[in-house]
Design a protein around this nucleic acid. Sequence first.
DNA 1: ACCTGAACACCGTTCAAGT
DNA 2: ACCTGAACACCGTTCAAGT
Lengths: 242, 242
Amino acid sequence: MDSVGEARLSGEADASGSGRRLPRGSLDKTQIVEAALAVTVLTGVAGLTMPLVAKRLGVRTTAVQWHFSRRDDLLAALNEEAVRRFNGLLPRVAPVGWDENLAGYWREFRRIARAYPALGELVVIGWTTVARHRDALRLSYERIDEQLGVLMEAGFSPESAARAYHALSTYVRGCLLNERTWEMDGAQEAAERADGGRGLSEFPHMRAAAPYWSPTFATDEDFERGLAIIIEGLRSELAQGR
Amino acid sequence: MDSVGEARLSGEADASGSGRRLPRGSLDKTQIVEAALAVTVLTGVAGLTMPLVAKRLGVRTTAVQWHFSRRDDLLAALNEEAVRRFNGLLPRVAPVGWDENLAGYWREFRRIARAYPALGELVVIGWTTVARHRDALRLSYERIDEQLGVLMEAGFSPESAARAYHALSTYVRGCLLNERTWEMDGAQEAAERADGGRGLSEFPHMRAAAPYWSPTFATDEDFERGLAIIIEGLRSELAQGR
DNA sequence: ACCTGAACACCGTTCAAGT
DNA sequence: ACCTGAACACCGTTCAAGT
């Protein structure tokens, strides 16, 4: 969804599928990463192949391979670029309470990952090897530092602040993984069918919880509820003076 | 790691890599799934190919394809079997407090996923399409129902219990995803290098939190801390009478 | 330095042919 | 019904050859 927005984000003007262009005189690493991102928007990371990237640039596959000799190298550069763009979309600190700030930050994090599925897939799932690239890491540090600052100024110890960031980051990552699990084929309806069906009669506690039970673990309400639990845990920790 | 343990788990007697056997008269779906699991233990899901499965069974690729016409079909069956075995390894309810029970359950969940990486990868990451298979889903329901029961008997409402299960399941899934991110190549050392280096001087809050900051988000301590936050949130919720 | 062209191993999938 | 054999499109990667 919103592939137009991502196409714009990737700097591609033409939304056409495979516009062949001449190589001109120069083929830059930047161009290749850009083309790779555009392809990923259309096909997902699994469908990102060297030939598709090459075709989009109007060159041979081996031309791409001269700049990125292995597909993994291209993926690493693509990851870095995705993290850079993703971080650029994250919100700055708002003048509200620490809890509201935290909730808003991660709510927005999730919104961005869903609005730009290719970025989300690259940043959330395929986060590997990004740490080696100092630039992308630094961009992440800026946002993290801001969030830690909000917590510390609210009275959290550095340790508690670090714990809080880790817990929320991990939880949101799990949420996005949940959502990605169910977004393909007819899995969603199948899950709901399985839930409402019989069989549940043998499980009394599940039956009692059924009205509040989302079989996909991937609704907005699911996300909000877990977020609330974690923030409540942090609030309780803060109240206990540690 | 512990590929021996997983080989035993998969029912394979010979630990040798590619033991070629004769097809006998029958080639069962069960055998194929078993062989696929054994291959996955050695190669991971990404390295699981139809030819490798066929070679292990001593048949041609197209013989496997007669039973599972598409690779995705085999993967779905493999997922189902992995969920079945994984659930069989999960602990039953222990006679301790609800919070300790919950912590122990998810601690063990994570331990199993790490002890049997192939099962972990199949269950945590490639959970897709499992919901369609009623048997595997039912096995999950048993464990879920037990955990919900512990919470409800402790005084949680059905809604709160459902929320709690979702939050913990999602958090642990995120943890395992974190860990999988950093377990390849030299990413781990690279992350630590980037963390201890300079650059951090521009980020005062990160510098303050550095002693408690794990760059990989994947240590035992990281896991325990987030777990404690969530359980503390639940404890607070319970105390407030909702 | 940067790109093309040919070639190889490998994989998923299809289909005709065997028994 | 169940398996083999041949074949096709596609991909990642290597390497010699061009400019």
